[in-house]
């Protein structure tokens, strides 16, 4: 197989950058919805790395993994947003710093 024009390393590097941005969003933003979006960004960057490796190894199994990750992400978003809506109803806020009811 001839060498692809865009090396797998570049894709993995881009995926690492996106993952870092996503983790920064999770740690720095205090809005629950934005934290969720950042998690989506991280999942997506992992998917990108998986697809890049699938091309590298010529194995389609990674595509299936990406498919499953997408499904899990959809389920996670549905449940997470439901939680946020419920919290918003009681607290009138989506700021995670306000949620310290369990704090000792």
């Amino acid at each position: 197989m001839d060498k692809p024009e865009v090396a797998t390393e570049l894709y993995v590097l881009l995926s690492a950058v996106l993952f870092t941005l996503g983790s920064m969003g999770v740690l720095l933003r205090r809005n629950a919805i934005l934290i969720f979006m950042s998690i989506e960004l991280m999942l997506n960057s992992a998917n990108l790395a998986l697809v890049a490796f699938a091309r590298q190894w010529n194995q389609m199994d990674a595509h299936l993994m990406v498919f499953f990750v997408m499904t899990v992400a959809a389920a996670e978003v549905a449940v997470g947003l439901a939680l946020i809506v419920t919290i918003y109803r009681t607290r009138q806020s989506t700021d995670v710093d306000d949620l310290h009811a369990l704090q000792g």
Binding site: V6, L48, R55, H63, M70, A73
Partner: peptide
């Protein structure tokens, strides 16, 4: 990028689902 990585099905799923 999925399209460039030879994954047309995932391209479609990414657009529609994500």
């Amino acid at each position: 990028l999925y399209l460039m990585l030879n994954a047309p099905f995932l391209f479609a799923v990414q657009i529609t689902v994500y």
